[in-house]
Design a binder for these strands. Sequence first.
DNA 1: GTCTAAATGTCGGCC
DNA 2: GGCCGACGTTTAGAC
Lengths: 277, 277
Amino acid sequence: MSVETLHRPAHRDALVALDHAFERGDLVVVFGRCTVEYDGRASSTLGPGDRLLLLKPDGSALVHTDEKRTPVNWQPPGSEHRASVRDGRLRVQSRRSNPDEVLDVRFERVDQISAFSVSERADLALVGSEEDLRTRILDDPSLVEEGFEPLATERETTAGPVDVFGRDSDGNAVVVELKRRRVGPSAVRQLQGYVDAIGREDADADVRGILVAPSVTDRAAALLDERGLEFVSLEPDDGAGSDDTSRATGADATDASESESRGEREDGGGELDGRED
Amino acid sequence: MSVETLHRPAHRDALVALDHAFERGDLVVVFGRCTVEYDGRASSTLGPGDRLLLLKPDGSALVHTDEKRTPVNWQPPGSEHRASVRDGRLRVQSRRSNPDEVLDVRFERVDQISAFSVSERADLALVGSEEDLRTRILDDPSLVEEGFEPLATERETTAGPVDVFGRDSDGNAVVVELKRRRVGPSAVRQLQGYVDAIGREDADADVRGILVAPSVTDRAAALLDERGLEFVSLEPDDGAGSDDTSRATGADATDASESESRGEREDGGGELDGRED
DNA sequence: GTCTAAATGTCGGCC
DNA sequence: GGCCGACGTTTAGAC
């Protein structure tokens, strides 16, 4: 069987289920009222409340509330989960070392515990990263500037590796820093660091610094200006193209019966529109 | 009732359950075999596989596999979830704008769907932040240097706000940058930016830059040296103190009956030690 | 292991 | 809302 679920189990039964799940390498979800303590790089305490505990076979642990994308508490992969019953209550601890960290979840009430056996995997194909930007620039250096000639990527300097290093048509050294989204002053400082570093390598050289990004903030623009650095606007590749307009035309909405529903808490008087795309 | 669960439901029944859950503002977990598509700031595709979909009433959506702390795909809070059945299969879409992003989860098989009504909340108390560091330094400025006098926190400069700004016993301006953990070159560049900015405000002033952190990397140390900046070692407060040693002695392990179990997949021949603390 | 920088980062604070 | 910087960031890659 692929799923094993206990509804409102006795804490001792929950422990047995966890035991099984750990042995089988299952993905486990526990929902109930609990307190959470964490101690490690920082430390925190969470009073009693309803939360969802997700335990993964790779040693990750996540405590989620009904809000936020980020878990309210967690333990990274490689941690070791341990379940126990103390004073008649289910307790899940997750420890790791380097750094030493402990997560301690004590349940007052267990509403449900489910163990899922995860079989297959498929790799994620992601498009639109900084790597894409670099590829495009190496393909067409004129995106940076007419006559720009890339010489190296990840060129090492005392300030760290430069994204793209090259020369302009006048033979000046050019440092290119790539960012996939709108940038603030930190990117300018990073670029400045590279330009300075290359400048120190060869005191006679004229080193230009070019920031390539979709756009810059006002403060960043001022800093660029102040430091005599340059900016080239370049959007990251969506990877989407004109493909999804065709999807919107309803190419696959032919004989299929379709029902819909929506979900986001309506705190105000929001009305749902009933359109089907 | 607090929990509502369907085991291996028909896709149409799953849709009805989702509908209910969305209306009630429940936390929803769907486990099953699905494909995932994301398009927005980047875009990605995920082939068929067993995954866990977590839908929160605040509009967050998380797709988790059996690995990693980070979801393989997600949507941030404020998104709008929409469920439908198309071609007889459950489909959950989550959209948001600014930026426009879509997450599309299509289920081939739904193993389980659970809706949890989350009632109470409890606030998180966290210790060990950069804020703590600043408080401690304002309490005892000699932690930075004997005779250091803080004049302002978050003092604005063209390079951004300075953590702590003050004067030394010789009347020189002092810029203090705080980091709660070991720092690399970027923190040095940041400090340099502040020092430069203050230097530009008053060309006559002597401006010192002090980085306060637990430690620095070799590269950062070299940069500090090169720029004539200074470093003061200061650990963040754990908030733990000597408290947890007493816990380890087993003060609360008296008459309570305790059973244990552990969970982390044993890929190699790792042995478990049987100690109970 | 340590170090370094990217990320669909997320999140909170301030303007 | 945009901008800015912290974060128990996490993660991947290089050494």
